[in-house]
Design a binder for these strands. Structure first.
Lengths: 220, 220
DNA sequence: ATTAAAGTGTAACAGTTGTTACACCTTCAA
DNA sequence: TTGAAGGTGTAACAACTGTTACACTTTAAT
């Protein structure tokens, strides 16, 4: 559930030509302020947009009007690159800036030219899209768990696997509830019960996994 | 929610070389019987597998052991091509044959060679992956609707948009419940109530949308 | 330091869904 | 034709989650 895509860190290297890009590459750069909605769900997606500096959050609005938080994206990373080539090439989410950002925009035909002429660029693109698909699949798996405690268990076990039994989240309770697609008080209740049962410990945004075995049982 | 990917119908054309493939392409073909599990969730994915004839179903097993039906795939179509390039290149789902099938297997390095040497092949690959991503996003959207009636409404409106107000599904009630990630009797109850309210009509697998306005209200 | 805003804990209640069980109806094969 | 198996309708109850409301704590800004 981490948002690190190391393969895009060498984007500048891939297309290096002195100033970081091939001298003949067509592109434009846009700047946006903090807390600005820069793309909306349904917006046409006719260029590859790469977040060069700053961070954004993506949110999906379901048809019932609820917010289903998806993820926080830190630079450098492309935004929804897969949709550049989809039949209905429209943004699947709302994109909101969390700080001042810089966006590199490469038109679609230019992307195609780069991919055919620069195999490395193509492979990075493929790898990134593959990881995105995997991310969505994980998300699907999380949402398909029906109980709140089950979702918490799935999520915390995943985090513990990556960062050890004690870790700090960058989400508050409300954001975590959105992430799980549940109501905030319901999440708080489940967390309280799990603390009561001695399975976990929570202090602000710091989480401790105390009993992995019981956590796993919650997935059953 | 249809499983047609027209862009892959000309796969034979793309790589045509007399017998349908380039004479120097490395590949192998495997045959499997009906009702065979040919890939399991977690299997290594080190080649591009293309379903040439027959049909399969993919199922995701959540950690709580529940089945979350994903889709039915008809030939010709590649199976989980995106995961060929992902960091953790493992199958995200179980794949089970619904009839006798023929699978074309192209090793990963050969796929890379084809992509760099045949721009059309690359574009088809990109388009397909983009559509897969969109499919997953739709699936995510459906699952994020919390009420069963809401899911039904979302699904039926989508179907009605594609096929008109009367259409026949290729899923029975149990499979539809799995697709929605809900219990079968719960789905039956919601359907009954919606029939009672004159919103829809159901006869076996034939569905009629009677009141689109009320259906849309269920999404609110 | 003070105040407003944001975040958190908790309770009561309503509403929805899951579970289990069973009757009935199809379909298909022996 | 007659089982047997699979599919569907329904009911009673349990379990879980959402809603609303409010008190309390923490954070950030002036």
């Amino acid at each position: 559930m981490k948002n690190i895509d190391p393969e895009w860190n060498n984007f500048r290297n891939i297309s290096d030509g002195g100033d970081g890009f091939p001298s003949d590459m067509k592109y434009s750069i846009k700047f946006h302020d903090k807390n600005e909605v820069i793309f909306r769900q349904g917006d046409l997606c006719d260029a590859l947009n790469i977040l060069m500096t700053g961070s954004v959050k993506t949110e999906m609005i379901t048809e019932n009007g609820n917010l289903l938080g998806i993820e926080i994206i830190n630079a450098p990373r492309p935004l929804a690159p897969a949709f550049l080539f989809s039949g209905n090439n429209r943004f699947p989410v709302d994109v909101t800036t969390l700080e001042d950002v810089e966006i590199l925009r490469i038109p679609k035909d230019e992307v195609i030219r780069l991919m055919t002429s620069q195999p490395d660029f193509m492979q990075q693109f493929l790898i990134h899209n593959a990881n995105r698909t995997q991310f969505l699949t994980n998300r699907l798996q999380l949402l398909s768990i029906k109980t709140i405690k089950g979702k918490i268990a799935h999520f915390l076990l995943e985090q513990a696997g990556e960062h050890g039994d004690t870790f700090t989240l960058n989400r508050n309770q409300t954001e975590l509830a959105d992430f799980f697609g549940v109501a905030r008080p319901s999440l708080a209740r489940s967390l309280s019960e799990m603390i009561e049962e001695g399975i976990i410990n929570v202090n602000k945004k710091e989480y401790k996994v105390l009993d992995k075995k019981k956590l796993r049982e919650l997935l059953v």
